[in-house]
Design a protein around this nucleic acid. Structure first.
Lengths: 325, 325
DNA sequence: TATGGCTTGGACAACGTTGTCACAATAGCG
DNA sequence: CGCTATTGTGACAACGTTGTCCAAGCCATA
């Protein structure tokens, strides 16, 4: 910048003013400075700038579980889009569901003085972030609530969606429903399971824990569990899979066996309409989830200091192929 | 940091030394400083640090087309994993296939003094990056080569894969093959199309441009094109779709019509084995692509100044369901 | 012509950190 | 007992930028 000032024959500060479009600089000087900038290929250093000004550095952080997962990739895409509209860069970090790693990454992002943080929480205690919040870093949690922390949160209506879906199965006459889930340790899974119970009880359908299988991590495991349940005594006539990886495995196994058990899946997926099996899914708008959260974050960054909000977005029941019997 | 120094009764510089694990500090002082750090909740500011030292700031940039696309999400995931092993943050930006935006984002990342850049190029002229490279920012291009720039590049064997796949169709007796592609403007598409031609010529199969359709952007468009070709005179007996979005549409339409045309698709996809149709795909390891590129980048960051390399990763033919006739 | 307000430019310090250097204290040597 | 190494410590400047403040120049008004 000093070189530019020399070449243009003005002071350092004048260059700074020109570069920042500050008022009160003669048009002729602006001209000269811009010419010098072009000639020397000067670009200001945003790091130094934000160090000095203490102001925003046009960066927000996004913490997710795993970027390669389409759900999180969609979130990242929507967040990036909103960030772009605000001329802001997005730093993405993956916690891999590890609370210790999550804490380290969040602290690291805060140390980099991001303007705000978008967090899909992995751990269940985020009180370590309280200091950061008080220090002025806005943050919004999405998909799952923060643990031990009052903060802006955007959630899906997991419970309501599961309730509606299972109610439909029950109304269609199913009384034995196999339920497959990834991990009861995850908030969304607990909510979905609660929703299923909500629907069973009023219909007088017993909640049979033998039909509920936790720890189903991938399609292969799901196929295996479906096998076991179908070959056991008093097999289910319907399956409720609590995420789309599981749904894939369930369908694959039912298809292989030629079974006509009904399938209800939480999470929609791209190729659902190609799947050779009638399938009802509980769908939601992932982009809208992320968009809402990111916009809320930018409100905070722009100075909104109102009481923390919690937004719950609706889910929708989508039937494809033949409806569940 | 000054506060920490006061509390510990040492100088600023000693605190800096302790924080950076520099040698030549008395164990007792280290003790006192760490206690003060803990008490005040001090964390050093990496921005200021990298401003002063001019050294790395433990950040690399990744430029892709669109983060929500599973292909790029997988790349981002693999890059993030390698970055994590090097204690480095990853900044991800999406160009949305817009060369102007690409240039702006790349310049912006360079201005933030990232340690290195991973680029899936969108435009076809990247000579504006030459200055950055000479200024010492290492960069690696992946999936597509840079335009007008000698730089490290990691590619897939698009041409060889397409050649092998089409050769197989030809050997199975197909002489009329419909070819559907997204955009001839994209490097990978051109390579794949060239590969197809490579396989046709030696078999004496004419390259009929009426069977080649450019501009097929999504599954619906692909379905439409398949319809047209099948209903036209002398319809194809096989289809080669140059990416997986197109493959989905092709299969959907063939399935709808009960057609038994053979399908060869570039790109594997998750649910390929669920698809109710015999399908051969040209598969490759996307994670390996990104991993190779990221590791090459870190070699450069760590000082490897050897001549730019180009790595080409193999593709593999995978047949699912019945083989093409 | 003197006064005051407004515009414009520049000197200086500061953001939080680290590299350089010098100095003090200690140890080792003849 | 001096002398040199060695080790530990701190003062200072610098990284590239911007906020603060002051001064100089200009115009309009009294």
């Amino acid at each position: 910048m000093a070189d530019v000032a020399d070449l243009a024959g003005v002071s350092l500060k004048t260059v700074s003013r020109v570069v920042n479009n500050a008022p009160h600089v003669q048009p002729e000087l602006i001209e000269r400075v811009l010419a010098a900038v072009a000639e020397l290929g000067f670009r200001r250093n945003p790091l130094a700038s934000s160090l000095r000004s203490g102001q925003t550095n046009a960066t927000i952080g996004l913490l997710i579980e795993e970027i390669a997962n389409p759900f999180y990739a969609t979130i990242a895409g929507a967040a990036a889009e909103v960030a772009r509209q605000h001329d802001t860069m997005l730093i993405i970090a993956s916690s891999e569901e590890d609370p210790a790693r999550e804490e380290q990454l969040l602290r690291d992002m805060c140390a980099r003085r991001v303007d705000g943080l978008l967090v899909v929480p992995a751990g269940d205690d985020h009180s370590f972030l309280r200091a950061e919040i008080e220090l002025g870093t806005p943050m919004v949690f999405l998909d799952r609530p923060a643990g031990g922390l009052l903060a802006d949160t955007v959630l899906l209506d997991n419970r309501g969606g599961a309730r509606a879906g299972v109610r439909r199965l029950v109304e269609a006459g199913h009384r034995r429903i196999g339920i497959l889930l990834d991990s009861i340790g995850v908030y969304t899974m607990r909510e979905r399971l609660d929703g299923a119970q909500d629907a069973l009880a009023p219909a007088g359908v017993p909640y049979d824990t033998r039909l509920v299988r936790d720890g189903v991590r991938d399609p292969a495991a799901a196929a295996q569990v479906v096998s076991e349940l179908l070959e056991g005594p008093d097999p289910p006539t319907a399956f409720f899979s609590l995420n789309n990886r599981i749904t894939l495995g369930v369908i694959e196994e039912l298809h292989r066996r030629g079974s006509d058990a009904a399938v209800l899946g939480f999470d929609d997926f791209d190729v659902a309409r190609l799947v050779p099996y009638p399938l009802t899914v509980i769908a939601y708008d992932t982009r809208e989830l992320a968009r809402t959260a990111t916009e809320l974050l930018f409100h905070r960054i722009e100075g909104d200091r109102s009481w923390p909000r919690t937004v719950v977005l609706p889910t929708e029941l989508v039937a494809r192929g033949a409806p569940p019997r």
